[in-house]
Amino acid sequence: MDLLLFGVLPYVSVALLVAGTVWRGRYDRFGWTTHSSQLHESRLLRIGSPLFHFGMLFVVLGHVVGLLVPMSWTDAVGLGDHAYHLLAVSTGAVAGAAAAAGVGILLWRRLRVPAVRRSTLRSDHLMYTVLLGAIVLGLTATVLNSTGQNGGYNYREGISPWFRSLFTLSPDYALMQGAPLAFKLHILFGFTLFALIPYSRLVHMLSAPLAYLVRPYVVYRRRDPRLTANRPPKRGWERVS
């Protein structure tokens, strides 16, 4: 079971992520958007959306540090285990609480503002469930862990090495055996969320407009008749030879 969940599922999720992104990029660029509902309602969105997005940015940053930086490195720079966790939990708690509060406001808004509710996409139902699940489980695991309910489980000795082993294509799923249930569930929800990215409105995160910082203000484009004239015929529409 662990092999399936922690040895195979992550790769399936990433494969779905990559395949979906390629599909979107090639066949459904028109669907690649934030699907913003700010036109319908602005007041709640202006509180909830920045809370959620900025909170999530820091949460992701925290995950990157916590999962990818080995314990030996922080030990080497003299950061003790206790100090590390104090730092991680305090910053993580702020970011996590912001993200949770943000998604709470956004969900309430989506359900209670009629125009927003009506503009909800079919993919949103699954996406919101998984997203909310991942956030709630993550917070639960953190709270349980830092209050000592997990019997002093150190994820940096179990989950983090397992996560890093994914990159070497030899997943050490046995490391996950000792992990508390909340962590396990959080990981499963997380990987499900990765898989959903290209198939839901989450796809907008893949087109963060950083190029805007460096491009010239006014964009000029030329309509090139040769492009349309010499475009290869679509499959099934070839001329009789």
């Binding site: 690649w32 407009p209 484009r221 309509r223």
Partner: peptide, 20 residues
């Protein structure tokens, strides 16, 4: 973008990401 030939300003629907 602004078209070079006739100056018409258009939105490329495939590239718009809805940042508004």
């Amino acid at each position: 973008y602004k078209r070079e030939e006739d100056g018409i300003v258009l939105v490329d629907q495939d590239r718009c990401r809805g940042w508004r």
